[in-house]
Design a protein around this nucleic acid. Sequence first.
DNA 1: ACCCCAATACTGACCGATTGGTATTTAAAT
DNA 2: ATTTAAATACCAATCGGTCAGTATTGGGGT
Lengths: 224, 224
Amino acid sequence: MKRRGDTENKIIQAALEIFVRKGYHGTSVHEITSKAGLTKGALYSHFSGKGDLLLRIIDEFKSRFIGGMVDTLKQSSGNALNRIHDVISFNSRFAQDNQHLCVFLTFLTTELNADVDFEPALKGTYLEYRKVISEIISQGIRQGLFKKNLDPDVAALTFMALHDGVLHQWVLNRYHLDGELYVRTFREVFLNGLVREEISIERTVEQMQSNSSKGSENGTSGGI
Amino acid sequence: MKRRGDTENKIIQAALEIFVRKGYHGTSVHEITSKAGLTKGALYSHFSGKGDLLLRIIDEFKSRFIGGMVDTLKQSSGNALNRIHDVISFNSRFAQDNQHLCVFLTFLTTELNADVDFEPALKGTYLEYRKVISEIISQGIRQGLFKKNLDPDVAALTFMALHDGVLHQWVLNRYHLDGELYVRTFREVFLNGLVREEISIERTVEQMQSNSSKGSENGTSGGI
DNA sequence: ACCCCAATACTGACCGATTGGTATTTAAAT
DNA sequence: ATTTAAATACCAATCGGTCAGTATTGGGGT
């Protein structure tokens, strides 16, 4: 017997895949339904329109990705460093198991963040995401594990930035890139940086001296 | 007197801004020309079409951004760490001076990387970008400044990932985010990591021990 | 087991609006 | 007067969406 949810999922999966590959406005309703083995009319008996379909996918992302991170953290005991590791592992597994969904938020947000119909849902999802990461970083700073001069929210944004960017690069180079190597590099760079520890320590001292004498040299780079 | 290049630039600037905000397929030719204070016909006497216009913007990006980095590096004396700092400074300044162009490549690539008309130009640009960064990292490894276990290409991709992601987050939060603080965090995290040096060193030893006993625990995270 | 029927799932033709692009005309500069 | 830039009017194609109608389904009643 055919169940209602099955067709909806077929449509959602087809739409998700094409949205990610060609963008929202680059994807036609016809293309979605024909990929799902249906005709256009069928979509409108399950969704109120193309926009509604997108919002449903955003919900799907929210519950699967954000929800999954939250669940992971509930079961994660240990200090903030362990918890960050657990989150990275979850994200890595999630990307592996949901090749299209994992980049959905990033990709669609670049196109639709100024669209009144979708901006609230997209920004809201990013906010939930940030809160999860920010909390861990705050905890890590309190526990003396992470650098205390970091703003937790900004550091969380940096984490998300790196994560989004890595996924982006990974998708662009999917067939020419060793995924495992890449994720190891991601971990290593985010947690410990590019620079060798010995060098890093010398450099920090050197920088503090030059900064205190030069004053606000950084002003020229304000604004990213 | 009206010079040919002036109107072309007006059109390019208008197109660039809307492309970045609404995506390529989400932007109509009418919208572009009307923003430039012209009508549709004018565009077609300067460009062969919407696609040609986009390719011209890609060229613009190539010469301004990639070319700018190369020029910066030509004038940059010193070791790889100094050169990376110079590149980050250039990128930071570039983003400041070219608010729309700086995210152009990232944003448009998410939508068009599967489009036969644009994919070669987009991927080619990313490749040039990567070669510039990869070369510095190789140099840094040779000079003993950067971790020698990193693959230069993968580390370059990580740099680009972080850079793209940071720009993305910055655009999404443009009015609620201290740009200077954000770029400092970017620098700090990419070069030295999130974790405090003392912790990092302890952890490295600890990890090496557990890794050698557990074997390939990382297999589950291969893929990000 | 059979038929019947109401509810549902889906089709296919169609709509108005908008799209990228073209052809022709007008205006302006040299 | 000739050339060129831009405006105007127009086109075929495609877009998202609607709707009347057709299969297909599942659940009584007998």
